[in-house]
Write a protein that binds this DNA or RNA. Structure first.
Lengths: 256, 256
DNA sequence: TATCATTGCGTTATTATGACACAATGATAA
DNA sequence: TTATCATTGTGTCATAATAACGCAATGATA
């Protein structure tokens, strides 16, 4: 199907396939080179950036819609995702944006479900950066990672959504374990600490951090040290999945 | 407008007024006689109970929709409300329920936006029990308070929504102050403690509770004691609004 | 072989928490 | 009038959690 035809299809008949007035936007976090990253799409024509998003199929759970969207953008399956907030400002003006988009593509259309007002549900995802292959979608010309401190101009209220997602992530950090989805299987303690420091945006004491993390029991130390470092070699660790899952539900019971 | 005509209007033309496929359900908590209560509506014909809910006007913020619904049910304005979760199971089958309802009323209708699948956004509200005048709506035959431990059969997934709301309320308790919207302006320390105990569903140590609550600074003790009690008279307290609001945003920094 | 950044493991002072003691209060009963 | 009693306000103490910091071990590099 040609690009133009596909767009036409979505605008003209999407409401037969998807729920009306509701969209899903994903904030996909990754961790790479000691920096927290977010995966963004560049909207075609407009040129500015957007969160990966999509719609909910008529018989689909919203969680599955979010997973589907994320799978399509990253190629990654089996991911930790959760909704964190619904954005419903009447002034979001998706209508205006979608009309402008159609105009840019060169399609005339009198009416479309895409011109309705939309509310959007924000989902946060944490993914292993190294496993992700960013994939562009039909509405986008580019798909790539951005440092959390270097976010470009974004469409609609997407910057606001991203900020809220970050706030939420920081809150979660206090009550849930974190890292299993963001780090490779084996990692060192300094790496894990750096992840926490990056998200919280502040320094943590190396020794106290180790004590608390180990206190939760979610980590297992391997009999293996990192090679090729110009100083004392740190041990590798990996997550104890059973205890990790347990802590996910029951909370960790400490503050950083 | 007659009852039947009004129903017809909603089913036939509601989509011109409201957003499609999205509803709002309110879990309205109140505190009375040392018991946590929830305000429920009795669905007409079906006879079983439901959360007060409604739809979002085409140009309305979802928060305002929730407030509007709550205002109509309770007569109470200026309320602490917040969304806490979106329920989107495809099997919620609002379609079936709404068709059955129409049939019960005796109206024939081929198609309606009300037969679409709906997702619903849950809102929790905390209200001063004594100020509430429960009001029935057009779809309901009764509206009253239920003890949280004595919930009747409910339609759809409303029992599940209520349970999630309670979980959420308990979680919030650890990080946010609570009580301003649930208690009268003046109250005693034992009353506040009872509120916490009721929500958490466990006993707290009287002396430690006082120490921690006062430690947050959100309370001001008045130079006035409760009269007519057959023992030592407790002081009245009221909330220090400035510090209360601050704690709402920044968290309280303690565990109960 | 010395240097150096970094790691693993530890100590100490401070603060927070849970469990409990005791005197004060004020209506009710004797 | 006085004793009783449930309940409140305040305080103590042992224990646990937290923050701040010390020091020897490691292993590539100079």
């Amino acid at each position: 199907m040609s690009f133009e035809k596909e767009i036409k299809e979505i605008f003209a008949k999407g409401h037969e396939k998807y729920l009306r007035s509701v969209s899903v936007d994903c904030i996909i976090f990754g961790f790479h080179e000691n920096e927290l990253k977010v995966l963004l799409l560049q909207a075609k024509y407009a040129g500015i950036w957007a969160l990966p998003g999509g719609f909910i199929l008529k018989e689909e759970h919203m969680d599955d819609a979010a997973k589907r969207i994320l799978q399509q953008r990253t190629g990654v399956d089996d991911i930790y995702m959760q909704q964190f907030y619904v954005f419903s400002e009447p002034g979001r003006s998706t209508k205006k944006a979608n009309k402008q988009f159609l105009k840019n593509v060169g399609i005339e259309m009198e009416d479309s479900w895409m011109f309705d007002r939309f509310i959007t549900v924000g989902y946060t995802a944490l993914v292993d950066f190294s496993k992700v292959q960013p994939v562009t979608d039909i509405l986008s010309s580019d798909c790539k990672w951005f440092n959390i401190h270097d976010i470009p101009e974004m469409i609609l209220d997407h910057k606001n959504i991203l900020d809220k997602a970050l706030d939420n992530l920081r809150l979660q950090l206090n009550y849930h374990p974190l890292g299993y989805n963001l780090l490779p299987e084996k990692f060192t303690m300094p790496e894990l600490q750096k992840l926490y420091e990056t998200i919280l945006d502040r320094k943590l004491d190396r020794r106290n951090f180790q004590r608390k993390i180990m206190g939760t029991g979610i980590l297992k130390r391997l009999n293996e040290t990192k090679k090729g470092v110009a100083h004392k070699a740190p041990y590798y660790y990996k997550f104890d999945l059973r205890k990790y899952q347990k802590a996910l539900k029951g909370g960790m019971g400490f503050e950083l």
